[in-house]
Simulated scan of single mutants.
Amino acid sequence: MTQERRTVTSPEALKALAHPLRLRIVRHLGVHGPATSTTLASALGENTGTLSYHLRMLERGGLIEDIPERSAGRERWWRGVRGLDIRRPPEEEMTPAEQAVADELGRMRLEEDIQLARRFTEQGEPGWMRGSRGLSHLTKEQLDAFHDDYLELLARYAYGPEDAEPGARPVLLRWFGLPAD
């Protein structure tokens, strides 16, 4: 399965994500699949009113969507929008307030990545932990090409909980590249 990717650079999407509970909602939907505000409230230890508000913010940001065929009456089922490549908009296109939101989201994601790196080094789970480090001399264009190839690889292996094979588990993947000097 190849998952089509859609790049999102809108400040609205970043604003929707720049809240700890919203990040937890998106993660929960990605790991466990579709849910209602009631099931999310129970799983995340929040009340349904709070969850409903944050679900609407995520929907407005284009990060989650309603599943009309599963929804009945007042009960709405939600799922994460698949194939999103969420990127920070160019600095010159953001207002100072939008830059502050993007910076806060970056700090939140960095903290999550630090926790994942600690977990990687402290909890070896046989057969389930993989990592790699490398060094190459690249131009900016080559780094951009490497990033695009990585996104294509992610899309090729982008299975959600609804279409994963038996025995599949949610696996967190991270990639970043930066100059060494």
Rank of each mutant, 00 (worst) to 15 (best):
125 E>I: 09
114 I>S: 05
129 M>C: 09
113 D>P: 02
127 G>S: 10
103 D>S: 05
102 A>D: 02
130 R>D: 06
131 G>H: 05
122 E>I: 04
122 E>P: 02
122 E>G: 02
115 Q>P: 01
104 E>M: 01
125 E>L: 09
137 H>P: 00
117 A>N: 10
116 L>Y: 11
107 R>V: 02
120 F>N: 11
141 E>V: 04
138 L>G: 07
122 E>C: 02
132 S>Y: 07
132 S>T: 15
141 E>T: 06
131 G>D: 08
128 W>Y: 11
115 Q>M: 05
122 E>T: 11
137 H>L: 03
108 M>L: 15
115 Q>S: 07
138 L>K: 10
137 H>T: 05
114 I>F: 10
128 W>K: 08
111 E>N: 14
125 E>H: 06
135 L>C: 10
111 E>L: 13
110 L>A: 15
110 L>Q: 14
116 L>D: 14
115 Q>N: 15
136 S>L: 07
117 A>Y: 13
104 E>L: 10
107 R>M: 05
106 G>N: 08
134 G>L: 12
103 D>W: 09
103 D>G: 00
132 S>H: 08
121 T>K: 03
128 W>I: 01
117 A>R: 10
130 R>C: 00
130 R>N: 04
103 D>M: 03
112 E>A: 11
130 R>Y: 10
133 R>E: 13
125 E>W: 05
129 M>G: 06
128 W>P: 00
119 R>P: 00
141 E>Q: 13
113 D>H: 15
141 E>P: 01
139 T>P: 03
138 L>Q: 06
137 H>E: 02
108 M>A: 13
136 S>D: 03
136 S>H: 04
138 L>F: 12
125 E>P: 00
129 M>N: 11
131 G>Y: 10
118 R>F: 04
129 M>P: 00
106 G>Y: 01
102 A>W: 08
121 T>Y: 12
135 L>Q: 06
111 E>Y: 12
120 F>E: 09
138 L>R: 04
105 L>P: 01
110 L>Y: 14
139 T>S: 14
140 K>I: 07
129 M>R: 11
139 T>E: 06
131 G>E: 08
109 R>N: 10
133 R>C: 12
102 A>Q: 02
134 G>K: 05
124 G>D: 13
106 G>L: 02
130 R>F: 11
135 L>H: 11
135 L>F: 05
125 E>R: 15
119 R>Q: 08
102 A>M: 04
105 L>W: 00
115 Q>L: 07
126 P>F: 01
140 K>F: 03
119 R>W: 04
138 L>D: 08
117 A>P: 02
127 G>D: 05
127 G>A: 04
107 R>Y: 12
105 L>I: 04
125 E>Y: 02
116 L>Q: 13
141 E>I: 07
119 R>T: 08
117 A>H: 08
114 I>Q: 15
112 E>N: 09
103 D>N: 03
112 E>D: 15
108 M>D: 09
125 E>V: 13
120 F>D: 06
130 R>E: 04
110 L>F: 14
121 T>G: 13
118 R>P: 01
112 E>T: 12
115 Q>I: 15
104 E>W: 01
105 L>M: 02
128 W>D: 08
123 Q>T: 14
